[in-house]
Write a protein that binds this DNA or RNA. Sequence first.
DNA 1: CAGTGGTCTAGACCACGCA
DNA 2: GCGTGGTCTAGACCACTGC
Lengths: 253, 253
Amino acid sequence: MGTTQLESVPEPKYWHLKTVLSEALDSEFSVGEILPNERDLAARFGVARATLRQALEQLELEGRLQRRRGVGTTVAPPRVGVAVGSEQHTWPGAAGDAWQATDCTVAAPPASVAGILETAHGEQVHTVRRSRVTHGQQVAAELLYVPASSVPDLSAIDAPSGAARARAVLRELQRLDLENQDRAVELGSARADDAKELDRLPGAPVLVVTTRFFAEGRTAAVSVATYRADTCRLTFGDSGGVEIHHDPERRAS
Amino acid sequence: MGTTQLESVPEPKYWHLKTVLSEALDSEFSVGEILPNERDLAARFGVARATLRQALEQLELEGRLQRRRGVGTTVAPPRVGVAVGSEQHTWPGAAGDAWQATDCTVAAPPASVAGILETAHGEQVHTVRRSRVTHGQQVAAELLYVPASSVPDLSAIDAPSGAARARAVLRELQRLDLENQDRAVELGSARADDAKELDRLPGAPVLVVTTRFFAEGRTAAVSVATYRADTCRLTFGDSGGVEIHHDPERRAS
DNA sequence: CAGTGGTCTAGACCACGCA
DNA sequence: GCGTGGTCTAGACCACTGC
């Protein structure tokens, strides 16, 4: 009767490990601290390295840990809140937005984007690359697809590609009357190029924010922004920019 | 000259596998179709089962596949768009919302929620469980935390717990003047109870939507909703409910 | 009971960062 | 060159589903 029921429904080892580690992180580690390496940790808990890694992967997914090849595993800071919906109904590139344009090419968009833009199959569009930095950290990479028909007066005297061209496309976009916009968020995995820009490995989990911009009764541009899922919490500030303070008791390293 | 450069930068096998499988899914399979089992697939591609599984995990994360223990791996339908932000500034439980209240208990919320609610440590609040079903599929589980101070007139004659109690709490909430609300989305992993409700294994990736409801100058309630990340695309309909049509060319099984 | 995906092991080698 | 995390293998057993 006094016996405690152990493992009657045997929880997976990695799940139990994750719980134990999570509690240890709360009580015995501070942000930025380096954990013992995977081989040592696995030995300490008496499990195979693969099993330990399953637990670490979960904790990284939840933003509790940060792992870097060649360096080690560190305790991650709390996720940063990144405002996504506060600047309602403004074009990308409007004064004071959080993005920096880095490049612009002309290319055929992926099929899913072409479907939204209602462009012909294989039709090329202006493709602006932008990146977003918050608190000194690169948090997102974006591709903005702009059909030629949305920027008819784009001057040929501007550079044919590069950051200057990107700014020219954004400038032209401002001239349209933005009627509405529309957002969706889903889970994805980083393509090789985005992963590199976000300083993650390919396949890293990302939050994909797809935004449609409506002008003149049609979809004038589509933005596909990928945010690091491990470090970001996307905020949709209906309340006018009130910031959520999260786990205020955790201290910085 | 004519030689194709193979593996000069050796892509990981699982990454290449994922690409190959992804293309096969597009061209040779239709939604709902069952794939060969993991042992056969691994043998067919000449890799260890663990490596194949790494590729399948990624594809499942991206919503391309669905795996069920004891059953098999099937081709997933396109993600369903789930409206999260369209019904702006209404209380949970307002007429016509997509949720169904199933239970209500009185308990101390997790520390992160207590911090937002600004309740004392260990203070108990009404905790309403709701679930959301779209297209016959359970897509989300929610816990709604309501401090007693937000529903002062809650009648003692209602049941102390259960669905009836949940509805009573929601009814009382409607009487408050909702001033604003505030949302955040982040990646998480399903706790055991949520996982069961969502018909997934514990640890499955979920999109966690945290909503704060402001009334009478303070946070009157907090909702933490977990959506299946594999099957859902969260839509924030600033444009008044315009629905994104995604990959319309894919056909149902 | 047979077949599926889920967990776990004990190794090996590789790619990367840094001193 | 050394130590780190990342990839990969070839097995084993377990938990669940459906017949």
